[in-house]
Amino acid sequence: MDPDRALVDKHLRDRYRDYQWREVTVGHSGSVVAHLTGPADLHLKYGPDPLHPDPGYDIGAEYDRLRWMAAQGLPVPEVVECDVFDGHTYLVATTVSGRDAASPWPAHERMRVIDAVADFARDLHALSTTGCPFDRSLRVTVPNARVAVALGQVDLDGAGPQQALTELDAALRGNDTEDLVLTHGDYCLPNVLLDPETLTVTGVVDVGRFGLADRYTDLTTMAGSIDGPLNPQYTREHTDRFLWRYGLARLDEAKAGFYGVLRRFM
């Protein structure tokens, strides 16, 4: 553990000395995440100010979104506190009850899990966008992608910076018309919690990228999560079910391809 992190870790462990800590290693935000059990059931996240311009790496941005989403009645963790210590922002929030959609589910329940995931996305996207202060449209995300490449904050998978940006520009061509809705921004199976008895959504987590964006931001991410190698319990049939339940016969391949490329820069 580096000295800066060790200092912050000691401060937070002293502050929450009555809790048992278990570090959570699932996820790719770059922050330290821990599950705290004791007088309450909490999750804690901390990290330094990120170089990457995407708000998914910014704990303060997630705090702002949690507060706004809660005020709209959306099921998100309740903020306990958010502060800065020694150049690191930390966020403590209540743990959302339930099991995430990526957990192992009995075969006979998986379609109902997918239905609940689709219903939540459809309902979220149907909400009024009035007053939402978080702009995640292409006029924000595409320039952020360019900045992230310039700062060396993107895994280019062997490609050079110019090659990567050329690929982004090519994918964007013809796909820059947006249907802006409220989006989760990182709508994948681990970020959706369900009641294991009723199979209804109890909440969503990791909302640092929440905001106004095209619905394909969520649809492409979730379709890839369902059909991806990290969730082998699900098949292409479940992806098709997600789209059907949401209200689509299929994804627009070109548009989904673009949002898949854009996601690699986040």
Score class of each variant (00 low, 15 high):
255 K>A: 01
132 C>W: 08
146 R>Y: 03
224 G>W: 10
134 F>V: 04
51 L>Y: 00
104 P>E: 15
68 W>Y: 15
198 T>A: 15
227 D>K: 07
8 V>D: 02
177 T>Q: 06
87 G>V: 11
204 V>P: 03
67 R>D: 00
99 R>N: 11
40 A>W: 05
258 F>Q: 10
125 H>E: 04
138 L>I: 04
24 V>P: 04
242 F>D: 02
259 Y>F: 15
47 G>M: 01
12 L>G: 05
160 G>K: 08
231 N>K: 01
40 A>H: 06
20 Q>A: 14
52 H>T: 12
102 A>H: 11
123 D>K: 14
4 D>E: 14
120 F>K: 05
176 D>G: 14
58 D>H: 10
142 V>W: 00
123 D>H: 13
78 E>Y: 02
212 L>W: 11
227 D>Q: 09
157 D>G: 08
211 G>S: 12
235 T>E: 07
66 L>R: 06
13 R>I: 12
155 D>R: 09
164 A>H: 08
71 A>K: 09
227 D>Y: 03
185 G>K: 00
61 A>H: 01
169 D>M: 05
207 V>Q: 03
122 R>E: 03
30 G>F: 09
111 M>E: 15
67 R>N: 03
148 A>V: 11
180 L>M: 02
258 F>N: 02
237 E>K: 12
99 R>D: 10
55 P>W: 03
55 P>G: 11
13 R>P: 07
37 T>R: 15
73 G>T: 07
190 P>G: 01
58 D>W: 10
153 Q>D: 12
35 H>M: 05
113 V>E: 12
144 N>P: 04
108 H>V: 10
151 L>Q: 10
171 A>E: 05
101 A>N: 06
81 E>N: 07
263 R>H: 01
174 G>C: 11
132 C>G: 04
56 G>I: 00
56 G>S: 03
109 E>T: 11
252 D>W: 08
252 D>E: 14
223 A>V: 14
84 V>S: 04
207 V>M: 05
100 D>Y: 08
195 D>W: 11
256 A>G: 03
133 P>V: 13
